[in-house]
């Protein structure tokens, strides 16, 4: 790995092969120019009286940072991240929203300080999925109904694998076969969503 990457190189790696992508995820996690501002911001703005245990706080921040990276990678792959935005600022914005949301769920009061002169991340809250227990369990149930091999096919497709790679991984004879399977699986998922309005209306909120 190089010591530094441009945003464009990061996007290419995330959309690249498995090894390249995984190496890039590790690099992002360890990149102190991403990590330090996020850890610093949450540390400085935390209400210490409610959780005065410094080790626990660090673990909490680390968890937010990890969730932020998961969302960043997902947004790059699902084309929610608009190229040209700084990845560092974008990741910061995601982590900030995740953290504010965690405060809300813990009912901790928070007044955000004015941060004049600081780069405000160009991000909307719709770009962050606040995965709650309820949401997770609904999605897990949908995926269970979807079953294999569709789950794997859709995952590999979303992870930007080529049809040829999907065919190799799942054991189809050709890329064309994998493409056909992907269409079927996407339709199957759509049908499951239609057939289970009791589950999916919650996700539409």
């Amino acid at each position: 790995m190089k010591s530094n990457y441009t945003d464009a190189e990061i996007v290419v790696a995330i959309r690249g092969g498995e090894e390249e992508k995984n190496a890039m995820i590790t690099w992002i996690y360890q990149n102190s120019s991403y990590q330090n501002p996020i850890f610093g911001y949450i540390r400085n703005n935390s209400n210490n009286s409610n959780n005065s245990n410094p080790q626990l706080k660090e673990l909490e921040i680390d968890e937010i940072y990890r969730n932020g990276i998961m969302q960043l990678v997902s947004n790059i792959l699902r084309k929610k991240y608009k190229e040209g935005n700084s990845i560092g600022a974008y990741l910061f914005g995601i982590c900030r929203l995740l953290w504010l949301n965690s405060l809300k769920s813990k009912k901790e009061p928070f007044i955000e300080p004015l941060e004049e002169g600081k780069v405000k991340a160009n991000i909307e809250s719709s770009e962050v999925a606040f995965l709650s227990q309820e949401k997770n369990s609904i999605i897990q149930r949908l995926l269970k109904l979807l079953g294999e091999p569709c789950r794997t096919v859709l995952k590999l497709w979303t992870l930007s694998y080529s049809m040829k790679e999907i065919a190799e991984k799942v054991g189809y004879k050709s890329a064309g076969m994998a493409r056909k399977k992907k269409h079927q699986c996407l339709n199957r998922l759509k049908d499951i969503i239609k057939e289970n309005p009791d589950l999916t209306t919650y996700l539409k909120k």
């Binding site: 998961m70 990678v73 997902s74 699902r78 999925a129 995965l131 949908l142």
Partner: peptide, 9 residues
């Protein structure tokens, strides 16, 4: 989209 997001995450 939320299902795909979940799979990636």
């Amino acid at each position: 989209d939320q299902v795909l997001d979940y799979l990636i995450q």
